[in-house]
Amino acid sequence: MSTAHGQAGADGPESGTSSQKHTAGAYDVRTVIAGLIGLYGIVLTIMGLVGDNADDKAKTGDWNANLWSGIVMIIVAVAFALWLWLRPIVVDPVALEKEKGEGTSDGSDAAPH
């Protein structure tokens, strides 16, 4: 999934003649992680704000567990989104070759792995 054949979310032209960079976009696993954890974070935060009741408080020992977990999850999701934005995975092989030829690092290596 680190390529984007015909992927609408990719930022390069679709016609294959491009020498511009393609990013993995929605195909990048970081997008999925940020999306799902972010969704969970939002739902839990709302649950914490409106749904906290005595039953829950007895279970958690008086912590608003949903609220705090939700906030942490939102922070994690934002961190992933930032990472994705700062270090996109470049997948177009033409672009990769070109960049290597120019002696600059290609985007996929720039992602800390």
Partner: peptide, 24 residues
């Protein structure tokens, strides 16, 4: 890809569980 996603969901599930358990 699912395994990576799953890793984060498991941590999101088990970390609060552990902290709440410790609190209790």
């Amino acid at each position: 890809y699912n395994e990576v996603l799953q890793f984060f969901v498991i941590v999101a599930a088990l970390l609060p569980l552990t902290l709440l358990g410790l609190h209790r």
